[in-house]
């Protein structure tokens, strides 16, 4: 298995178009196991698209993308991997969405157990037990029998994190996990993510929470118009950005 390799995501000259518009251009990126990478950038810079490529919610048009040892299917190179490989990658890559996307017709517990039972063929009892543990890890053990609509935004997002963790992923993708939350609920979600990072989970996070990024990130990447303008440690990026546009962006976002 290629699992022995130290990198979990490898992008080489990745290109992605929406129609004729280039949204990601010549992206080169390697993410190491256990690393926390934060992607920042203005709206429309392609950061969501970038992480959606990693679990195949979007497909790319050029370049190579290797996730957890599997080459992701590419539109111009359809033979690279079939839909079976896509499923195999999705089993190992968890994703947390801005809008939570919990299944509203299922209880919190069923949200957590559905995929382990159906995809990993775990017994319902096993999965329920694991769900219980995960819920207490995110501080929601009392809410297992509730429906998502009965929870606050922050609680729903914590359930969504637990749901992704229930698949025991090697990599977690976060697509602006706190952007749809009321300000007072942001910290409860960030706390869960902090703990996750401390436990050594590999994470790629798109966020506007700069304080959190500085504290948790191993590296921060600044994406602008589909290109990486700068990648570096938080100190490098925040304290001495090389690029003028990074400077402008940071000054704008850190001002308030």
């Amino acid at each position: 298995m290629t699992n022995a390799s130290n990198s979990i995501v490898e992008m080489v000259n990745l290109n992605k178009y929406f129609g004729t518009q280039l949204v990601l251009s010549d992206i080169n990126l390697t993410v190491i196991r256990g690393e926390v990478l934060v992607v920042i950038g203005g709206s429309g810079s392609g950061k969501s698209t970038l992480i959606r490529c990693i679990n195949g919610l979007e497909s790319h048009e050029g370049g190579t993308l290797i996730v957890d040892g599997y080459t992701m299917p590419c539109r111009t190179l359809p033979t690279a991997a079939g839909s079976k490989d896509l499923l195999r990658i999705r089993k190992r890559v968890g994703m947390v969405f801005q809008q939570f996307n919990l299944f509203p017709h299922k209880t919190v517990r069923d949200n957590l157990t559905l995929a382990p039972v159906r995809v990993h063929n775990r017994s319902p009892a096993d999965a329920a037990e694991a769900a219980e543990k995960l819920l207490s890890r995110v501080g929601l053990e009392a809410h297992a029998s509730k429906f998502p609509a009965q929870l606050s935004g922050g609680q729903q997002q914590r359930v969504a994190i637990a749901r992704a963790l229930a698949m025991e992923p090697d990599l977690m993708l976060f697509d602006e996990p706190t952007s749809a939350l009321d300000p007072e609920m942001v910290s409860e979600v960030l706390d869960v993510m902090r703990e996750l990072a401390a436990d050594g989970m590999t994470m790629i996070i798109v966020t506007h929470e700069m304080g959190f990024a500085r504290e948790v990130a191993g590296r921060i990447a600044y994406l602008d118009k589909g290109r990486f303008l700068e990648i570096g440690t938080p100190t490098e990026l925040f304290d001495s950005p090389n690029n003028d546009r990074t400077k402008t962006f940071l000054s704008r976002i850190l001002k308030h």
């Binding site: 919610l57 999705r90 969405f97 995809v119 969504a160 992704a164």
Partner: peptide, 16 residues
Amino acid sequence: KGQQEAARSLGLGEFD
């Protein structure tokens, strides 16, 4: 659209 995306990202098959 997020419902389908969330289900996909969990690795569920088309039938599920």
